[in-house]
């Protein structure tokens, strides 16, 4: 294992760290809305960082530009598809999302506070869980697959109407126990490579991993349109990919572990603007 770790370190060092550092740039959406991509670290990550930096600042010029205009951002195709879905009645109750919630823009302010404690259910809920709760109990429709297209598109719509609002997820009160679980997971080494989230995104952000740069791992940009697979990717899908890359058995999207991790990771980036759907590598 020591030999492996050594080889891994060699790879980390092989790239030129000069262009791994975050760039100086300002994210202005459609020439109008400025989005906070760099700000003082919130309490959850103040021990690790002086300031929190959005993954947007770790991307190349062309990728950053693609996110600055709603037409250039391919993720917005899926927001439009979700908008159709928002206004379409489904399920035995014959209701659409719009029947209860009004226009999708009315949901501005929802994305920044999720995952969030739900008193009635007695649990912390991700946005996906809340959407499926609506589908099953209010619409009497089939729940969506946790990281399926319909779900990720809907979360993109809900993120898009909150773009520019600062992430503001609560870690205290009834959510604290789940938050502590998430923190525990964040610092636990997994897999044959024995890597914790913190090893890459706290200890080595700004450095290269193979030919790519490591960000601080904030989730204010999710869901993310990745150039790699040219579709929207959910945050639990990213978690799964990361854990898999440590050569571990991963938790399932929607599992209590990933919900706890999402809660914790979200609070580490409190203060960064909502960007979803963002564009990343």
């Amino acid at each position: 294992m020591k030999r492996l770790t050594a080889a891994f370190t060699v790879c980390l060092m092989a790239g030129a760290p000069t262009w791994a550092d975050p760039v100086e740039d300002t994210l202005v959406l459609n020439g109008e809305t400025e989005i906070v991509t760099r700000t003082d670290a919130p309490p959850a990550s103040a021990d690790a960082f002086d300031e929190v930096i959005s993954g947007w600042l770790f991307r190349g010029d062309e990728t950053r530009e693609m996110q600055m205009d709603d037409f250039d951002n391919p993720g917005m195709i899926f927001v439009e598809q979700a908008e159709d879905s928002w206004n379409t009645a489904e399920g035995d109750a014959g209701k659409s999302c719009a029947d209860c919630h009004g226009a999708s823009e009315e949901m501005a302010g929802v994305r920044p506070v999720y995952p969030k404690w739900n008193d009635e259910a007695g649990e912390v809920r991700s946005l996906e869980m809340q959407i499926n709760d609506c589908r099953e109990n209010r619409m009497e429709a089939e729940p969506w697959k946790y990281t399926g297209n319909e779900m990720v598109n809907m979360t993109a719509l809900l993120a898009s109407v909150s773009r520019g609002m600062p992430m503001n997820v609560a870690s205290d009160g009834p959510a604290q126990e789940t938050w502590e679980q998430g923190k525990e997971l964040y610092y636990t080494r997994f897999g044959q490579l024995e890597l914790a989230c913190a090893n890459c995104h706290e200890d080595n952000y700004g450095r290269m991993i193979r030919a790519d740069h490591l960000s601080q791992g904030h989730i204010n940009g999710f869901p993310v349109y990745r150039l790699k697979n040219t579709k929207l990717n959910a945050v639990h899908g990213r978690f799964k990919g990361c854990v898999r890359d440590t050569r571990a058995e991963t938790f399932a999207p929607g599992s209590p572990e990933f919900v706890a991790l999402e809660l914790y990771v979200a609070t580490r980036g409190n203060g960064l603007g909502v960007e979803g759907p963002s564009v990343r590598n």
């Binding site: 030999r3 080889a7 092989a14």
Partner: peptide
Amino acid sequence: MQLTRRDAILMGAGAALVV
């Protein structure tokens, strides 16, 4: 350092990058 297959693969990836 004894080279294992995994090391070779990992280092190969690094080398390909450099070249």
